[in-house]
Amino acid sequence: MADLLTFENFTNLVMLIFLQAVLGFDNLLYISIESQRAPVAQQRAVRFWGIIIAVALRVVLLFIVVSLIDRLSEPLFTLAWDGILTGAVNFATLIYLIGGVFIIHTAVKEIGHMLSVEHLEADVANKDGKSAASVIALIVMMNLIFSFDSILSAIAITDVFVILAIAIVASGIAMLVLADTVTVFLQKNRMFEVLGLFILLIVGVVLLGESGQAAAHAMHDPTLALHVFGHEIVPMSKSTFYFSVVVLVAVEVIQSGYSRKLAAERAARNH
């Protein structure tokens, strides 16, 4: 126990909690949006149990990854279709690919759903389209996919399991505290739900980009990177991603404020 109570471990814990908070933003956004697909009376319970189960499984996933990190790094197979598709594929590559495709599919589907709804009342009536259990299952599954990136990043900081587990539990508590607030905000400001879906779309693209370098980074061999039609798949940097998010949010805020100003001016003229 005394070995854990060191300044280095404390510093690593603070860094990990901050890292989990930053990387957990898109996860919380997904939970808030997806939970609204459940029956209205069960949405809060869906968010609560979805996060609780996901955090518990994330700790289990952490233990598995820490135990098998070297085996998970090894390429499962190598693609050698010259000029079309080349590079190595490991476990992380598959996780990023599946997660990226699923998130893009979800975002595009929900954006299409919004465009097809003629009245807000019809949209609300369709909220009961998914069962609570199915929504919880989706939240848990996507939480694990999101967590894979954060777990690998966390392991780069420290390999002390207790410190890693505490950081994950702390991030889970933060999501429990903020989930209802974020969901209520999105419900009252529907334009930001559209913004959230476009951010999720970017997250899906980021995950697809991460898949291209997963095996190369794990094995420290740039020749293992995936290439499509001769072009290397390069991931979007975290700074670029968050800059894009900030720009999208700023545009939405400015546009919303300008729209309210125009509406007020029109109302003043009519009087």
Rank of each mutant, 00 (worst) to 15 (best):
T106R: 05
L200S: 10
I95R: 07
A154P: 04
I139Q: 12
N126R: 15
V177Q: 04
D82N: 09
I103N: 04
L97K: 11
V203A: 10
L28D: 10
V140G: 02
N126H: 15
V249E: 07
A165R: 03
K127H: 04
F148N: 13
F63T: 11
T181A: 10
G83Q: 07
A179V: 09
Y258Q: 04
I98V: 15
S35E: 03
I202H: 04
V108I: 14
P75D: 01
G99D: 02
L178Y: 03
M1T: 07
A154F: 00
S67R: 04
I202M: 12
T181I: 07
G230H: 05
S244G: 02
V117D: 00
I199W: 06
L79I: 10
L94Y: 03
A88M: 06
K188T: 01
A170G: 05
V14R: 08
I31D: 12
I168R: 00
V117Q: 09
L13G: 06
S73H: 15
F146N: 15
L115N: 10
D149V: 03
F192A: 08
L224I: 07
H231S: 11
S32L: 02
K127I: 01
L23M: 15
V184K: 05
M114Y: 12
V162P: 14
Y258N: 01
F241C: 07
S244C: 08
I168G: 01
A179E: 06
A174G: 15
L195D: 07
N90F: 13
H217S: 08
L76K: 05
F241W: 10
E193Q: 12
R47N: 12
E34H: 04
I98H: 08
S211G: 12
A214W: 05
M15I: 09
A125R: 15
A268M: 01
K261A: 00
L94T: 03
V140A: 08
